[in-house]
Structures are given as structure tokens and as C-alpha cells.
Design a protein around this nucleic acid. Structure first.
Length: 657
RNA sequence: GCCUGGGUAGCUCAGUCGGUAGAGCAACGCAUUCGUAAUGCGUAGGUCGGGAGUUCGAAUCUCCCCUCAGGCUCCA
């Protein structure tokens, strides 16, 4: 007999040798059917494993995150089996789960590659394997046996050889640790190296979709062979799968590139070049509004406004160290004046250091906060540019704060407050912080300096009271950083502002100030971009709001429509009164049917459509059709609307709220 | 940079076997004067991403380049 404890605390006695499957059956038929794996003392295990006496055991179904993860991992195995059936001689590498799904990497014989059409064939083969109801049979081997089993499989062999020596997190996921390797056999012809656990049989799978093929470097190293990767998603029901696909479509509808086109905000003319955007009048208005607001807040926050040129001699970036680390990411230099090399600037900071150094500085001037909307150019690799979020030319709302070591903590604390407050004004409310520490390979500065900088940032971040995530080794070469991450309306997270602490640039540029002791001292420099880049921030706002921007940011806030053309004069009158209040208003006279003009305005996501007809002309009122509302208001007094509108603009609200 | 798939009118897309290009929307013109998501008719609009090649003939087949999308690598 074995006795186990269930999660609710009840004890259950079973025959000795009883498995997770037996336990599930003893609890109930429905559970037995839904069971995928068991959690024994917190460790996920196959249903077929005998339960140890005295264990705490939880039956895991697809209703839990663990269960779904197992389901996806098992589906990845089926994918591998299908590919090996269709491409005899294919080599298979790793097939982990990822958010909402899984992938598997392969090397096909004779350099063959997957095409999109192959996905359907592979999926059909997978369904066949699922119909065959193949069991997942766990087997354990010594390392030598493992190497023998996978003698023909170089990627598997490499993973096995790494066991106990240089195994990565990913390897362990595949094989487990402890000097032995485990495999899962589905049939005589297919065995995969895997730590498990797995669902009992392939028949338990089925609600999946292969999404796309992609190239992926073996072990993520671009110097190693590029494998063929297939991405898939898998769920426990048809409904869950369809809901997931629907969510993907929803995200597509919010895509800022699509909305930017539809709303006539910006474009990327091919004549200009990849990753280089032009903003159209409406997008330009949006930018102006954002920048104006930001400028005002910076004035209030005690910042000094500076500007710097777009190009500079190489020497500046040699001194800063950027050329040493990031020459690949910079546009190549132009040679001028007998071999003098000039670069487009990828960063604003060295310029701001030079402004600091332009004259002798006193401790009385610190903290000195320099701010600039600085345009920078970075030569991003051709495959990485992406809409407005990854561009080759962008404008950073960049500032550099020079302060003393003693001021550092307070300055960072108020800075973080400043940043979060401003982001909230743009409608982002759900934040967490990420602390990026010293990068392992490229970093300058002493261990002590890094330790102090990291400790300072960490204490400031903790004091902010937000969730804090560690990003080990993610810092810049000159210092660690805190980044503010924001969750958008559909739950995606975006890296927003970064705050970086830098002891190195002041040293490299030999920046000093005179302290109260009449001695020279080295200032600390804090780098900080709030929007990150204006372009990227616009992209995030567009996606967050699905194009329906808050009224204060809408390029066109109000459109006035006359019912008949003899109401046009009144429409223009209403518009000019609203304009006098500072509103951005367009009148569309009655040349088309009212319904058509309403529709057009709605599709342009204009916050307020005002309709004026006979009744309004006689009584000085308007009809209001607010964005997001299904029932238009009639006979509203113009003054009422002006107040309502002014309040909404001032509070940065939206008509939907 | 690498892998896969795209690029046809301003936008979204169709175009069979290689035979010289089409729709809807938008634009423009005329008519229509209308109370809350598409009024009707008409006109104009294309070196089919660019270049080379094969062919009597190329949007269509081949090669090179540009560019976009999804990944990988990278992101000061």
C-alpha cells in the first residue's frame, strides 16, 4: 500500500506500485480522462510513474499552466516525428515550449528547407500520428547509451555530451541532470531525447496550428549552422485555439504600421530608405503635441534645454567608447578635410558632456539637467527594422543629469517619479521595473563602481514600490540601468523609459566640477530617455489605443457636419467658436449624404462628430456623436459641449471613458 | 547579415497554360440636399518594385538587386 496526500489535504490509499493514472482513476472518471501528468512533491512526472509512499500528489490537467506546457511540449515531439517521417535523414535539434506554443529546430537532408506549403503536409502527418494513439514511453540511459542511440543525430549528441559539464538551462530541459539521460519513445522509429514529462499518448493532443517557418541559429549563435524552425501553437480545446487565433488577429488590427497608413500619420517612402520615416500632417501634429507637453513638463522639472549637431568628428565617439563597442551599429563615416572622419551621431550623451565641460562648473550648479529632443541615426541590420519601433533614424527625448555622488540617490528617486508620472499622463498605468546589471563581455569601469551603481539603482527601484525584475547582464557598457516596462491595453509589455547610471563618461571626458572644498571632483552622469524614442512611443500609443487616441492627442478632435447645405454657415460658425477655444476642428459641408460623412469620420477615429441641422440652427445647439458611443445626443447646447470638451482635453481623457 | 514568404492603380486585392491589365474603395467631375457608419452616374489613374536574361511574345519563366512581413542574431 502507498498513501499519498492530495492538494486539498485529504489522504488517499492505493495499491503499492500505483501510478498517477491509477490515482486519477480512483478520484474520478472525469479527472482520469483529463489527467495529463502528475505533480509529485512539486515535481512534474509522467502519469505512468509509480507514486512514492507519503508524497503530496496533484493531478495536472490542461486547465493549469503546467498542464498546457506539457501538452505543448508533447505536441513539439509529434512535430519532430512528423518531420522525420516526411524527410528521412532529417536531423532534429531542440523543441521547447514558448508562450502560447512551441517550436522545433531541424536540419533537413541535402540542405532542404521548409516552405510555407510544407506546414500543411507536416500538420497532416502530425494528425495521423495523433490518431495512431502512440504512447510516450520514458526510458533512462547512461550517457554512453544515449550517445549510441543518437549516433546519427549530431545536435542530440552535442546536448548529451554537455550533460554534467556545460549544460545550459535549455539542455537540461531536454535531458534532465544527474549524469543520466532520459528519452521518450513514441514508436519503434521515433525516440526523442527529453527530460519530460509527457502526456500519456499522442491521442491526447490535437488542438494545434503550425504558424510559420523561420531560420534560427543552432544554440542562438550566428557563427553556427542555421537550422529550420517551425513555430506552432497548441491548446486543450478547439475553443481555446480559436480564441488564441482571434487574439492574434486583434493584435494585427492594432498594428501601428497598418493604423499609421489608415489614419494618414506617417510612411516609409522607399526612396528615402529602410527604417527612415516621414510624418504626415496628422502624425506631425501628434508628435508636436507630445513634444510640447514633454517640453513643458521638463521646464517644470528644472531641465535646461540644449541642442547638438547631427554629425561629429570620430574623436568624440572614440573618447566615449561607442566606436569601440558599436561601430557596427553606426553609419559609416564620411571623410572630410584631408581625412577627418565625421560620423552621424548614434547617441546624444557625449555632446551633453561637452556642454557640461564648456566652462568651469561649480557644485552649486548641480544637479545640472540637460535636455534635448535629439535626432540620432543607427545603422540597424537590414533584417531588424520594424515599423516605428526599430528604425534607423529617430528622435530621443534625451536628458543627461550631472550630479554629485551624494545627490545621486535623491536625483534618481525623483527622476523615477517624474518618468512614471509623465507616462501616466499618456494613459499608461500598469508598470513594472527591470534592473539591468553589468554585461559580462563588454563593460568598462571597476568592480567597485559597478557594485555601487547597481546597489544604488536597486535601492531606488525598490523604494518605488513597483514589481522589480532582474535582467542579469543587460546593462550598457558604461553602467547599469533601470527600465520602466509598461503593459498595454491587450497585456503586452513594452520597454519604455530607461534610466542609466554612468560613472564612465565623465571620467573618459575628464569632466569635473569644483566642490565646496575648492577641489576638482568627478560628477556622476545619469542618462535618461523617457519616451525612449518619440517614434517608438508613438507606435506604442497607437497600439495601446488601437488608433483611438485620447482627445488631447488627436490630430483632428472635432468634425462638424451640416445636415443640409443651408446649415453649412452654422457649421462653420460652430467650428470657429471651438477653434477659439483651441480645438482642432474640421467642417465637412453637405456634399455627400450625412451617413457617408459620419462613417468616414468614424473610420478616422475622430473623438467628436458634431451634426448640425434645422433644430440646431434655430436653437443654437449641436448634435454630438462621440467616438465609441452608439447613441448620438441631440440638442446639446454649444456651451455645454465646450465645457465638456475642455475638461476632457485638460484631464487627458477620452470620449470612451 | 541569415532563413521563409511577399511587392500589380493612392489603399485592399484578382489576374488560368507565357499572348500586352481588372475590381472595390479613395480621387476628380456632374447630378443629388439628406438628422447619425457607404446616393447615383461618369472620368481619370499602372514602365505589374528595379535591372538583366530566355522567348516571336514576360505581371507570369531564370538570375541579380531594392524593399516589406514573420523569425534568428543584434539593440549603446
Amino acid at each position: 500500500m502507498v498513501e499519498v496526500t492530495l492538494p486539498d489535504g485529504t489522504a488517499k490509499s492505493l495499491d503499492s506500485g500505483a501510478t498517477g493514472a491509477d490515482l486519477a482513476a480512483a478520484i474520478g472518471a472525469r479527472l482520469a480522462k483529463a489527467a495529463l501528468v502528475v505533480k509529485v512533491d512539486g515535481r512534474l512526472t509522467d502519469l505512468s510513474t509509480a507514486l512514492p509512499n507519503g508524497a503530496t500528489v496533484e493531478i495536472v490537467t490542461a486547465a493549469s499552466a503546467d498542464g498546457l506546457d506539457v501538452l505543448r511540449h508533447s505536441t513539439a515531439h509529434v512535430l519532430a516525428q512528423a518531420v522525420l517521417r516526411l524527410w528521412p535523414g532529417a536531423k532534429y535539434a531542440i523543441g521547447p515550449t514558448i508562450t502560447d506554443g512551441f517550436y522545433y529546430d531541424f536540419e533537413l537532408p541535402n540542405g532542404a528547407r521548409f516552405s510555407d506549403d510544407d506546414l500543411e503536409r507536416v500538420a497532416d502527418e502530425m494528425r495521423a500520428i495523433m490518431r495512431e494513439d502512440q504512447p510516450f514511453i520514458r526510458e533512462e540511459h547512461t550517457i554512453d547509451q544515449g550517445l549510441a542511440i543518437f549516433a546519427e543525430q549530431p545536435f542530440k549528441s552535442e546536448i548529451i555530451r554537455a550533460v554534467g559539464t556545460a549544460a545550459t538551462e535549455e539542455d537540461l530541459r531536454e535531458v534532465g541532470d544527474g549524469g543520466a539521460v532520459s528519452t521518450y519513445r513514441n514508436s519503434e522509429s521515433f525516440t526523442d531525447l527529453c527530460r519530460g514529462p509527457h502526456v500519456p499518448s499522442t491521442s491526447r493532443l490535437g488542438f494545434f496550428k503550425l504558424m510559420r517557418v523561420a531560420g534560427a541559429y543552432w544554440r542562438g549563435d550566428e557563427k553556427r549552422p542555421q537550422l529550420q524552425r517551425i513555430y506552432g501553437t497548441a491548446w486543450d480545446s478547439k475553443e481555446a485555439l480559436e480564441l488564441h487565433l482571434y487574439r492574434l488577429e486583434e493584435a494585427e488590427r492594432r498594428d501601428h504600421r497598418k493604423l499609421g497608413q489608415e489614419l494618414d500619420l506617417f510612411s516609409f517612402p522607399t526612396e528615402i530608405g529602410p527604417g527612415l520615416a516621414v510624418f504626415h500632417p496628422k502624425g506631425g501634429t501628434l508628435r508636436r503635441l507630445m513634444e510640447d507637453y514633454s517640453r513643458q513638463r521638463h521646464v517644470d522639472g528644472g531641465y535646461e534645454f540644449v541642442t547638438s549637431p547631427h554629425i561629429t568628428k570620430a574623436e568624440l565617439f572614440e573618447t566615449s567608447g561607442h566606436l569601440q563597442w558599436f561601430a557596427d551599429g553606426m553609419y559609416p563615416p564620411m571623410e572630410l578635410d584631408e581625412g577627418q572622419r565625421y560620423y552621424l551621431k548614434p547617441m546624444n550623451c557625449p555632446f551633453h558632456v561637452l556642454i557640461f565641460k564648456a566652462r568651469q562648473r561649480s557644485y552649486r550648479e548641480l544637479p545640472l539637467r540637460l535636455f534635448e529632443f535629439g535626432s540620432v541615426y543607427r545603422y540597424e541590420k537590414s533584417g531588424v527594422v520594424h515599423g516605428l519601433t526599430r528604425v534607423r533614424g529617430m528622435t530621443q527625448d534625451d536628458s543627461h543629469i550631472f550630479c554629485t555622488r551624494e545627490q545621486m540617490n535623491d536625483e534618481l528617486t525623483s527622476l523615477l517619479e517624474f518618468v512614471l508620472d509623465l507616462l501616466r499622463e499618456f494613459g499608461l498605468n500598469d508598470f513594472y521595473l527591470e534592473l539591468s546589471t553589468r554585461p559580462p563581455a563588454k563593460a568598462v569601469g571597476s568592480d567597485e563602481e559597478w557594485a555601487e551603481a547597481e546597489a544604488t539603482l536597486e535601492s531606488v527601484a525598490r523604494a518605488a514600490g513597483l514589481e522589480l525584475v532582474l535582467d542579469e547582464g543587460g546593462g550598457a557598457f558604461y553602467g547599469p540601468k533601470i527600465s520602466v516596462q509598461a503593459r498595454d491595453a491587450i497585456g503586452r509589455t513594452h520597454q519604455m523609459s530607461t534610466i542609466q547610471l554612468d560613472f564612465q563618461q565623465p571620467k573618459r571626458f575628464e569632466a569635473t566640477y569644483i566642490g565646496p572644498d575648492n577641489q576638482r571632483h568627478r560628477p556622476i552622469m545619469i542618462h535618461r530617455a523617457l519616451f525612449g524614442s518619440v517614434e517608438r512611443f508613438i507606435a506604442i500609443l497607437i497600439e495601446h489605443y488601437a488608433g483611438a487616441l485620447p482627445t488631447w492627442l488627436s490630430p483632428e478632435q472635432v468634425r462638424v457636419l451640416s445636415v443640409r447645405d443651408d446649415h453649412d454657415d452654422y457649421a462653420f460658425e460652430v467650428a470657429s467658436l471651438l477653434r477659439a477655444d483651441g480645438a482642432r476642428v474640421v467642417v465637412e459641408p453637405a456634399s455627400e449624404p450625412l451617413g457617408a460623412r459620419i462613417r468616414k469620420a468614424k473610420m478616422e477615429k475622430i473623438p467628436y462628430v458634431l451634426v448640425v441641422g434645422d433644430d440646431d440652427v434655430t436653437s443654437g445647439t449641436i448634435g454630438i456623436n462621440a467616438r465609441g458611443s452608439n447613441d448620438p445626443e441631440r440638442g446639446v447646447s454649444l456651451d455645454d459641449f465646450r465645457h465638456r470638451f475642455a475638461n476632457e482635453v485638460a484631464s487627458h481623457g477620452r470620449p470612451e471613458e
